[in-house]
């Protein structure tokens, strides 16, 4: 799965854009290791966290990762992604901690308003519980600034208070590559090593490094229904509603996450190269094409981040 020769522009005096982004991300991860005492790396099996895992290998091999992998599972994830998550964690020989929104529901710390409500935003509660349980002082995540305008203004080392809240008006200045990860007990850092990557950079890096992905990132046939201009997958947790017209389409996922809020796009792309070609010419943003939850209000991501979301 790993390409034998990873191209590096060390030949010239200029780094390629992927070399530069990779070097920056490695530097950020090593700062976490150097400054924080109990970090964790959020690994969901999605493409951004697959890049994080590769970057962690580049940052710390031949040593072990100085942090465990952590996944907050809504219980509504695609089985292909969960299988991939477990297999990949075992292959690289690092410890994977899974904490489940369903456990928070059983404890009563997550209460759904309706049984069918998306569990996506409730991940914040389970994440904060996992942070408290393990005493994590930093959580490394795969969020990118190009995803959303609230993220465009977030720091690489993003300070969260003991409620996990992000305060956009009170962020620490971040200069040069001098990151300040100092916190007091109970507070937490969220760290985003691929802040400066775009969706296209992620795909190009996956291609260059020859990284394996869950199968649902590639074109496959799947029953879907059309909702608000998006394709909604038909699954046991998202069953057909009265009036829905089910179509069997060739689709792929640009982003994978909770089934109730991640939509596939029509595509015939069966290789990374074909995905890159589609990404380069697409006319719809990643979240615009795939998120069934971000459209509810213009500021929904900003609101969720203030509540402790990544």
């Amino acid at each position: 799965m790993n390409s034998p020769v990873s191209p590096t522009a060390a030949a010239g005096s200029e780094l390629s854009h992927l070399d530069w982004l990779e070097a920056e991300a490695i530097h950020i991860m090593r700062e976490v290791a150097g400054q924080c005492s109990r970090p964790a790396l959020l690994f969901s099996g999605g493409k951004d966290s697959i890049c994080l895992l590769r970057l962690a290998e580049k940052a710390f091999r031949p040593g072990r990762f100085p942090f465990p992998l952590l996944h907050i599972d809504t219980g509504h994830n695609y089985p292909e992604v969960i299988d991939f998550r477990d297999r990949r964690a075992a292959e690289i020989g690092e410890r994977l901690i899974v904490r489940s929104v369903e456990d928070s529901m059983a404890r009563g710390t997550v209460v759904l308003r309706t049984p069918g409500e998306s569990r996506n935003k409730h991940q914040s509660v389970t994440l904060l519980e996992a942070i408290e349980e393990h005493g994590f002082d930093a959580c490394i995540g795969g969020a990118r600034r190009d995803e959303e305008k609230a993220r465009a203004k977030e720091r690489i080392f993003s300070f969260r208070d003991e409620f996990g809240q992000w305060d956009p008006k009170n962020q620490r200045p971040e200069l040069w590559n001098l990151y300040n990860a100092r916190i007091t007990r109970g507070e937490n850092m969220r760290v985003f090593p691929i802040s400066n990557w775009t969706e296209l950079d992620v795909w190009q890096y996956i291609e260059r490094e020859g990284l394996e992905l869950p199968s649902i990132y590639f074109a496959h046939r799947r029953p879907v229904v059309r909702r608000n201009g998006l394709l909604a997958p038909v699954t046991p947790v998202t069953p057909v509603q009265p009036g829905d017209v089910v179509e069997d389409l060739q689709v792929r996922f640009r982003t994978v996450g909770d089934i109730t809020c991640t939509a596939p796009v029509e595509s015939a792309a069966v290789s990374i190269a074909e995905i890159i070609e589609e990404t380069a010419i697409t006319t719809v943003s990643e979240r615009g094409a795939t998120r069934l939850d971000d459209q509810t209000s213009e500021a929904s991501m900003e609101q969720r981040k203030k509540e402790g979301y990544f």
Binding site: S3, V5, T8, S13, L15, D19, A23, E57, K58, R61
Partner: peptide, 21 residues
């Protein structure tokens, strides 16, 4: 060293330049 990089893919580089981790 840079994991699995370099001419032989064994992680060993003959040299490295400004900006590289």
């Amino acid at each position: 060293r840079l994991h699995e990089s370099g001419p032989a893919g064994d992680g060993k580089l003959p040299f490295a330049v400004t900006g590289q981790s």
